[in-house]
Design a protein around this nucleic acid. Structure first.
Lengths: 154, 154
DNA sequence: TTACTTGCAAATGATTTGCACGTAT
DNA sequence: ATACGTGCAAATCATTTGCAAGTAA
């Protein structure tokens, strides 16, 4: 389903380069370090957090936040990264080299737990079919308290 | 689970007035027409759309968009309305007097289809339990094309 | 050389806030 | 009379965009 599933860095890089070539876009240091960082850190980044990380890790690059946004948008449109939305608070991005999954998000500490459940996915397809709706993607987030924060509240 | 489920207008209004009193807030015409409109129109409103509607329906009130935002936020914090997020594009609000449900959203025309599925809700609880996570709410949106838009594409 | 890219700063768009005036209680 | 509420305009915050200079191909 997802072309980038389970790829490691060199394959991702090759895919990215092809993608750029196919669209007459150029392979730049900035685009490279965005992809590399998402791969190596394997975290959910806000554009701001990623910008700060890149700024301090590659000071000589003098990357601008607009470039971070542009690159993340490019990668997302190409399905190489996915994002989870936090409403007014913005989005977090992660590399799409993992199999599809959804997220539990702790409202207190921001911890993100990934999960996936085939039965739910199956039920979603059935529901869509019954409504003559054609699903292209879905969003499922469970919000609440992680174990640690739940304990601290009591 | 939801205190406001299945209430009709008079009961909602009473609940709202109590809520205001309990918090030393005042019952105003502006707050009243926001609640009334959400009840009567039974739609998913953006703050902007609701503002435009109120502006033209109650011109003598001369309502400001800031008041619409403030009232929607107040109602949402009190769980009398719920919202669905459209990322950068903002939020849509609806009255919480219907039983819990989730949404299918057409990416082309914006049509919203409501659905609910007990099996999925049950599975979500089981997944959370297995991860020692305490769910307080969840977000589930199926995105894609409605029947009409899917036909027009082909 | 010829586009495409970049950083910067300004623009945008949704939402929030300060303030002086208005109004429920 | 005393807060609290409101409209307005300005402020904010995340994100996008125009532009002149830089750089991959």
């Amino acid at each position: 389903m997802n072309t980038f599933e389970n790829l490691e860095y060199n394959s991702l890089l090759t895919s990215f380069k092809e993608l750029l070539k196919n669209n007459s876009l150029k392979f730049t240091k900035q685009r490279e370090v965005v992809l590399k960082t998402l791969y190596e850190r394997n975290e959910h980044f806000t554009p701001e957090d990623l910008y700060i990380f890149l700024k301090s890790t590659y000071p000589q690059l003098n990357i601008g936040i607009a470039t971070v946004y542009r690159t993340l948008n490019l990668l997302e449109e190409s399905h190489m990264v996915t994002s989870i939305s936090f409403g007014v608070a913005g989005k977090k991005f992660e590399l799409a080299n993992k199999p599809h999954h959804d997220h539990m998000i702790c409202k207190t500490c921001g911890l993100i737990i990934e999960f996936q459940n085939d039965k739910i996915e199956q039920l979603q397809l059935e529901i869509a079919k019954a409504n003559h709706f054609h699903i292209t993607s879905h969003l499922m987030q469970l919000r609440g308290l992680c174990e640690k924060c739940a304990k601290e509240k009591s």
